[in-house]
């Protein structure tokens, strides 16, 4: 039964597109991959507030690390490579 599967995949894709658009509207600053992971996490019943704070925290950490790297210009260039 290929059709129902196809249909399910299609529906999932559409759903994800919609969510992605909302995410863009809200300027969540998440890329599609991260968003899909987060959505799946939510679907699994993770507390959305907690998840949001985790994501934000991670982003902040990463930013901080980037800042630290930009301070030492060499390490940054190596990273980009």
């Amino acid at each position: 039964m290929p059709e129902p599967v196809n249909y399910q995949v299609n529906a999932a894709r559409k759903t994800f597109q919609t969510l992605h658009q909302i995410s863009k509207l809200l300027n969540t600053n998440l890329d599609a991959a991260t968003l899909s992971i987060c959505v799946r996490l939510c679907e699994n019943g993770v507390n959305p507030h907690a998840l949001a704070s985790v994501v934000k925290e991670l982003q902040r950490e990463v930013n901080a690390m980037h800042n630290a790297q930009t301070d030492s210009g060499t390490s940054k260039t190596s990273l980009t490579k």
């Binding site: 399910q8 529906a11 999932a12 559409k14 759903t15 919609t18 969510l19 909302i22 995410s23 809200l26 300027n27 969540t28 600053n29 998440l30 987060c38 959505v39 939510c42 679907e43 019943g45 993770v46 507390n47 959305p48 507030h49 998840l51 949001a52 704070s53 994501v55 934000k56 982003q59």
Partner: peptide, 24 residues
């Protein structure tokens, strides 16, 4: 659109997005 999509935890996702938006 989202309403007729097979999402188990639509509310959760929306809250998550909302919180993310704020952070943004």
């Amino acid at each position: 659109d989202l309403k007729d999509k097979p999402l188990k935890n639509r509310l959760g996702i929306l809250i998550f997005l909302l919180n993310m938006g704020q952070s943004a």
